[in-house]
Each structure stands twice: as structure tokens, then as C-alpha cells.
């Protein structure tokens, strides 16, 4: 029991299980004998975690309840399988629905963000290119891109954060700053971009995403000597890389 408690206190397991509704039941509880039978759980089955869709279909199961290093990837794999099906069955058609209301589209974008449906980054980018896009949807689309943190999503956010329209740039920059640590990987190269606005947007975002202490103000980049600017970029790169190492080890595999 102690091993199980420890596994379910492990940050990898907690992170992998964040999108599941958790519930426990005794194998011998007669109220659930029909459910157990439907899930193929025999009368002598030991402790296990069973992954189920909201409709009651079994996604998989794990008996590795005392070993977080095995349990976390098994939970993540079950979720990825659910998410891929959910995107195909529920979300994909809604992106293409010309009659969808603003609220319906916003709800789909929120679902994409919440479930980290990386497959949908192209659909979200297409929404941003709609003519006359309401600000409410622009905000939701930017937030979805930030939460996905894919290469294409980050690319669009940094371009818009450095764009000529101040209001749009602010919205994109705010969303980008809330991206997961993995997004920083796609921003590091932009610190050396030919375009000063891109460099600044990338710097601002990386320092926020990786919680770099004492970031320089925008004025610093206008006035700093080349040597000091290079030192600052070296410092930020080093801290960002440390932060990404932890992310790649403890979180990225369980997204």
C-alpha cells in the first residue's frame, strides 16, 4: 500500500494522470461486478489501474502501481490513445464547421489547450487566418497555440508577438509567455534573429517561460554594448537549457 501511495505521489504520475477522472473501487464490490466483467477484470485480479473512456470502453490497464517509472508512461500512453481518437471523432469536424458560433469555436480551442491536442496545431493556425476574427477567438487561439507549444505554434506566436500591430503583438506575447517549458527550445534560435523585434519577443518569452531571474528591460537591448548583450544571452541560454533538461526528463514524456 505504501508503494502505491508513493507512486501516486510521484510528480510524473500526477502529471500523466492530470486529465483523468480518478476513482477507486473494491474488486469484490458487487455493485460493480457488471462493470468489472465488461472491462475484463477477473474475480481474482490484483490491484490495477484501468483506463476507460467516458463511454465505458477500455483504453488499457496497468499493474505497475508501485513503480512510477513504469506507471507514468502507461497512463500517458492511454491518454494519447484517447486524445487521438477524441481529435478524430470530436474536434476535427468542429474546426471545419462554417456554422459554429464564436462560443462553440472557443470551447473547441479550450479543449485543444486543456488536452494538449498537438495534432490540432494546424487547425488552430487556420483559425488565426480567418478574416475579421473576433478578439475573443484570437485570444483563445493564441492560448491554445501556447499550451500546445509545438514548433509551428511557437513560430506563429513569436512572429505575431513581434508584429506591427501593437494590440495583436501584446496578445501573442502574453500567450507565448505562458507556454510550457518545451516551447523554449523553439525560441532559443530566435535570440539571434536578424529582426530585433523577434529577438526581443523571444527573449521576453524565454525569461518568463523558464522563470529566469532578473531579466533585462527592453531598454537594455537598445543601449547595451555588444559584449554585455552577448553575456546576457549566454546567461539566459544556460538557464533555459537547465530548465529544459528537467522538463524533458519529468514532464515532456507524459504530455
Amino acid at each position: 500500500v505504501q508503494g502505491r501511495q508513493l507512486a501516486f505521489s510521484d510528480r510524473r504520475v500526477i502529471y500523466a494522470a492530470r486529465n483523468f477522472v480518478p476513482v477507486a473501487a473494491q474488486r469484490g464490490d458487487s455493485r460493480y461486478s457488471g462493470l468489472f466483467q465488461q472491462l475484463g477484470i477477473g474475480p481474482h485480479a490484483g490491484y490495477r489501474g484501468v483506463f476507460i473512456t467516458p463511454d465505458g470502453a477500455k483504453l488499457g490497464e496497468s499493474a505497475a502501481l508501485e513503480d512510477p517509472a513504469r506507471l507514468a508512461p502507461e497512463i500517458a500512453m492511454a491518454f494519447r490513445s484517447y486524445r487521438a481518437q477524441f481529435y478524430k471523432d470530436e474536434l476535427k469536424a468542429k474546426f471545419g464547421d462554417p456554422n459554429a458560433t464564436v462560443q462553440e469555436t472557443r470551447d473547441v480551442l479550450r479543449k485543444v489547450a486543456q488536452m494538449v491536442v498537438e495534432q490540432a496545431d494546424g487547425d488552430v493556425l487556420a483559425i488565426l487566418d480567418r478574416p475579421g476574427l473576433p478578439t475573443e477567438l484570437r485570444v483563445a487561439a493564441y492560448q491554445a497555440l501556447a499550451d500546445l507549444g509545438t514548433s509551428a505554434a511557437v513560430e506563429r506566436l513569436v512572429e505575431d508577438a513581434a508584429g506591427p500591430d501593437a494590440a495583436t503583438a501584446r496578445l501573442a506575447g502574453q500567450a507565448l509567455a505562458s507556454a510550457p517549458v518545451g516551447a523554449a527550445e523553439f525560441l532559443l534560435d530566435r535570440l539571434d534573429d536578424d529582426n530585433a523585434a523577434i529577438r526581443l519577443a523571444a527573449y521576453r518569452a524565454i525569461t518568463r517561460i523558464c522563470e529566469v531571474p532578473q531579466p533585462k528591460s527592453d531598454n537594455f537591448w537598445t543601449n547595451a554594448k555588444e559584449k554585455r548583450a552577448a553575456e546576457e544571452l549566454r546567461r539566459v541560454r544556460g538557464l533555459a537549457e537547465q530548465c529544459m533538461t528537467v522538463w524533458k526528463r519529468d514532464y515532456a514524456p507524459y504530455r
Binding site: 494522470a17 473494491q26 474488486r27 485480479a45 489501474g49 483506463f51 467516458p54
Partner: peptide
């Protein structure tokens, strides 16, 4: 750690409402 409510019907209702999958801990 993760809290484990024990009401399966409520968990199914919650999963349907939020379109999230369920992690059922079966205690042998």
C-alpha cells in the same frame, strides 16, 4: 498525491460531462 473518490457513478458522470477519460483504481 491523487485523491481517490469512491463513487464510480459520479466519476462516469463527471467524465461524460468533461469528456475526460477515467482512471479506475481496482483494489484487489
Amino acid at each position: 498525491g491523487i485523491a481517490w473518490p469512491r463513487n464510480v457513478e459520479q466519476a462516469i458522470a463527471e467524465a461524460k460531462k468533461t469528456q475526460r477519460p477515467i482512471l479506475l483504481l481496482v483494489e484487489g
